[in-house]
Amino acid sequence: MRTRMALMYSLLWRLLLILVHVNRALFSWLHVRIQSWKGRLWERAATVLLLPISLVGFPDFQNNLNHGPDANAKPITEKRTGGCRSRCLSDGKSLKKIPVHIGLLVAEEEPSYPDIANVVVWCMAVGISYVSVYDNHGVFQKNNSRLLEEIKRQQQDLMGVDGSMHSVEFLSSGSDQHQHNVVSCRPTVRVLSPDDGKQSIVHVAQQLCRSVENKERSFKDINVSMLDLLLRESKNIPDPELVVKFGPVNSTLGFLPWHIRLTEFISLPSHRNVSYEDLLGALQRYGACQQRLGHCHLLLMKKLPSHRL
């Protein structure tokens, strides 16, 4: 009797899991369909109404409505250069708050370089100063030259000829990290792996313990701000205010444990074929989170549970 019950429960559990999976798939399919439908609708609308007018008229609307950005969304394939850049800039300005440092956490198998390069370029175009790319296999860090190539190429494609204005400072935690001094206001891209997380804390701990071993300081002198300073490694990069996580796994997977103290996590289903609107939506949610609008804020959360990490 008991084994039969156990069998039934495990069958029911499997059924439940399948239902949840189907529900998820359906939801994301609908999401894509609605987006493309909306995109087409606005394409038509934009040709009827003059686009510049809608650009001026919409910013306020955008902040309140999550799908506001679709309002002035021109499909990117249609016009890739200059227009796109100015659009990114105006979007950046219309956001109530943009992070200074954003983390892109790829929690998926087989990372796609062009897609993630796209996101990096959009982040920089919107006006984010520091972009950290992470995956828990360290694939991006191992092939960081390939990623850099891809980013440069996408930049040319998306931003037009004057991509030089947004040239990239590329930091990787290899041996050359101390050669870089971030003094310019150029956007900085960092490629991180698990070694930059717990392992970097361990390195700092070793460093401090050695100095105690050599009688340079006492264990009593060690405090939080000392560790924080050492973990910044003289590059004055602020902690990421926002991490956008791509993929179905709800975990940080070892992303900079020390630095994510106050980081907001926002989840997107995948970095594959991710669109500019998806990223903008995440940035808008981040702005909304910061505002703490009481009920309004809670409503927004309720509407978007499946996207949150």
Partner: peptide, 23 residues
């Protein structure tokens, strides 16, 4: 309560935990 950050809680221990934010 819908906040989506860890607020300095178990940062080291949860690096491979499942995080669930509920409103």
């Amino acid at each position: 309560s819908g906040e989506v950050r860890l607020s300095d809680f178990l940062l080291w221990q949860t690096s491979h935990s499942c995080l669930v934010f509920q409103s």
